[in-house]
Amino acid sequence: MKKKIPGRALGEAVRQLFKKPATSAYPFEKAKLQPKFRGRIAFEQEKCIGCKMCVRVCPAKAIEIVLSADQPAAPAPVEGQAPAPAKKKFDCVIHLDRCVYCAQCVEVCPKKALASTDDFELAQLDRKALRRHYK
């Protein structure tokens, strides 16, 4: 049986009086994030080829890849060659309320069109704002 000491935490409590507070003054002070942090997903349209791998792996069905409203015109046909088809453009719709921020879509993207950002302050007053349409 160990010896019983009353007020065992007293010394520690007194020592803490002269230390800096352990809490941070968020939101006045920016939260420190680690470099591998997985926040809001960013999308780069130029890189996307529309393979929809991200849609297939998303566990929360939070990502959609849709055809852009305005498609670029087909390149001018070169004489003697078959006409080249137009390169399609894709938009990305992310439902922030469904996203679980696992970043599996970032990992699976063959063209690195998706990326994790440091943005984590995603609360909205308007529900519609949670649907982000990246063009």
Binding site: Q34, K36, F37, R38
Partner: peptide
């Protein structure tokens, strides 16, 4: 908090390290 910081350092997030 120290160990949560360690987990964030290794996995990226504090609770679901994935």
């Amino acid at each position: 908090e120290h160990v949560l910081d360690c987990l964030e350092l290794v996995g990226g997030n504090r609770v679901h390290y994935s």
